[in-house]
Design a binder for these strands. Structure first.
Lengths: 377, 377
DNA sequence: GTTGGCACTCGATTCTACCGAGTGCCAACC
DNA sequence: GGTTGGCACTCGGTAGAATCGAGTGCCAAC
């Protein structure tokens, strides 16, 4: 058979000896069947599938090869085969088109984005619900980081005799706040003066680079300004800013039947920081899918993560993700994640009136070509 | 023994024929044992327990009575007994003291409340983590409703040509926001004027009763004020305001071994509104514990909910709750919930500098007497 | 009223037999 | 050469029978 007799470069141990068409078809059949039934797939079933026009015996001998090369495993002798992570990876990279949503789902998405309103957090929260609803998997949505958003307004509001609240409004509509303690009784006028000073010095800058604020003459005001300024830089500290919205965690309990797996995956989802860096990681590697142990967390070894970026006018504005078992429905999940990610980006852009940043409002073109991760040959 | 021969008022069908001391002791032994082992408890085990100084045979005959009266059930003939919801209820109401936290836990709580800082939401979120950590059950924390908090500041911040953000700061440190759309290009000066007008008209009032705002002469400004004012009343609409923080949902997966139970309970926790009204309901009925079907949600039939109020200067400021299996460790859960609820209230009070509202800052006395729900006779 | 004794129940566990989906191998075929 | 049908073999899953033992209900004796 073809086997593409290259001189066995072997950058990866046994790995990328490309599969010939028939092997690919068989792998595809196994993956598809297994995703549907969660049962090991035998040569007989594969032989029946359209596209594989060979006998069960031939399928068997090919499956032995596929097993040697690490695409399939047998749970035990004389059982059917199950895809490995590598098998899923090949399937996702080479064998599946992103897929399209059904009309009902498409309509759900449209209706959702037509109706959704309210603040960013609420929108993200609900988006996570939508995604989970579309796919029956647990969904995660992380919003834009605010580090680079320009400051629109800074204000100090008195709450108590020595307590004030620093309220910062950013260009993307986010509001950050931090309570600060002031030395002694601080009259409202002083706060007003400090607010004005902060506003003058900071407006238009981003949280990440708050530079210096000019002094007024008044020592008391300057003190307040200093405290507020310190609190401000605290606001941009990492981890504090990013919110993660998890939708439909209960779906995990249907996706996995081992209660221990459910527990450990839920445990991961509880750690927002981990989730954020997980999504970011996957996107940074230019992928849309992370399967099994590809990401480094063992509790997620039996999970796959489908990620799509959210961007507004070409700028990174967060990500959406779907978390399910490795035997998840990749085409559907990819389609859902990308559509929702895209629409969410547009929606956020709309909400900001297209005047969000220095970019001219030219909507970035949709780029369906890059969807399935590295798409080969 | 006592049986307290009251004339059998029978407001409940068979129910409150009080248990004599021996029956109570047996029930207690069964509940305690079952909580520990999750196995049906036989007469032999009960007879061995200190406090029950009778033979297994006697225990058996008493258990028959207890079963008739609905405190115990047998999963099948010739198995030990399991407490019913009614059994747990009696246990909670009459047989258990609130319990105290171990020194290690006590220290965790202290350290937590010494260290915790940042904004309300963050504090509540972390509190839910603490509670879950202390008890190994899932925890819920709902913050104060903002309806009655006085408005400290109202501000309109321009975000785009026709988009502005209404930012409201409340006396309790909460910041609410809502984006509003304005007719045509709206210069910053107009927004400033409208802000001032809103501020004048609304400061000191609560979100619930925003009354009327006086007109300026300027029609454009009045229009903006009107839009903002409408958005404001939208803010106080029910359901929108209350945030629920769920801590340690993964604990549910260890508390229940049936994956379907986990799924349905997680499903309930996803519905914030339900959770809020659940906690509120229980507190309104003057209880600290709701067991099994006492609350109306079937998915929670195998759960118990332990609730403690959070109050600041005697005012309702939310609640904390623990959700576990009906065979949860009630004394520990009650202790943890009440301590954390109390400390949280104090902490919020501190953060507001004791000047939160019209109440003079007299800390409300601790009232440990009311802890275990209706504690009778 | 309490207790020890005793026959009985019934879920859980273990063992055995058996079924059948699926495999690996091989000889025959193209 | 690759492909195919045939065949013996493997082994997890299921069903039934036997066994075990914790726990019960009942009763006679204390």
């Amino acid at each position: 058979m073809p086997k593409t007799e290259e001189p066995t470069i072997d950058h990866e141990p046994i790995a990328q000896r490309a599969l010939d068409d028939r092997q690919a078809a068989i792998l595809e059949a196994v993956v598809t069947e297994y995703i549907g039934t969660a049962q090991p797939v035998g040569s007989g079933h594969v032989a029946k599938v359209a596209g594989v026009n060979v006998s069960a015996a031939t399928v068997r001998s090919e499956m032995v090869d596929l097993e040697h090369e690490g695409y399939l495993v047998q749970p035990h002798t004389s059982a059917g085969r199950i895809p490995t992570d590598k098998g899923y990876r090949f399937f996702v990279d080479h064998l599946t088109e992103p897929g399209v949503l059904g009309p009902a789902q498409r309509q759900k998405v449209s209706r959702f984005f037509d109706q959704v309103h309210g603040e960013m957090e609420q929108m993200l929260e609900r988006t996570s619900g939508l995604l989970s609803d579309l796919t029956s998997y647990a969904a995660v949505v992380v919003g834009p980081t605010h580090e680079s958003a320009a400051i629109r307004s800074v204000q100090l509001v008195g709450l108590g005799p020595r307590l004030a609240l620093l309220v910062v409004v950013l260009a993307d509509g986010a509001v950050e706040k931090r309570s600060i303690e002031l030395g002694d009784d601080t009259p409202d006028e002083l706060l007003a003066a400090a607010s004005t000073q902060l506003q003058l010095g900071l407006q238009g800058r981003s949280l990440a680079e708050t530079g210096v604020v000019a002094k007024t003459g008044d020592a008391a005001v300057d003190r307040a300004v200093g405290v507020a300024h310190a609190a401000l830089s605290d606001l941009s500290s990492p981890g504090e800013a990013e919110h993660v919205f998890v939708g439909g965690p209960s779906r995990l309990a249907v996706a996995f039947d081992a209660v221990e797996t459910v527990r450990s995956v839920l445990g991961i989802l509880e750690q927002q920081m981990v989730v954020v860096s997980l999504l970011r990681d996957v996107l940074d590697r230019g992928l849309s899918v992370s399967i099994g142990v590809e990401h480094g967390y063992e509790p997620l070894a039996s999970c796959a993560l489908v990620v799509a970026p959210v961007s507004v006018d070409g700028h990174d504005a967060g990500a959406v993700g779907l978390l399910g078992p490795t035997r998840m429905n990749y085409p559907q999940a990819l389609a859902a994640a990308h559509v929702v990610g895209e629409r969410l980006g547009e929606r956020i852009g709309d909400a900001l009136g297209g005047s969000g940043s220095e970019d001219r409002g030219a909507k970035r073109p949709r780029t369906p070509g890059t969807k399935g991760g590295r798409r080969g040959r």
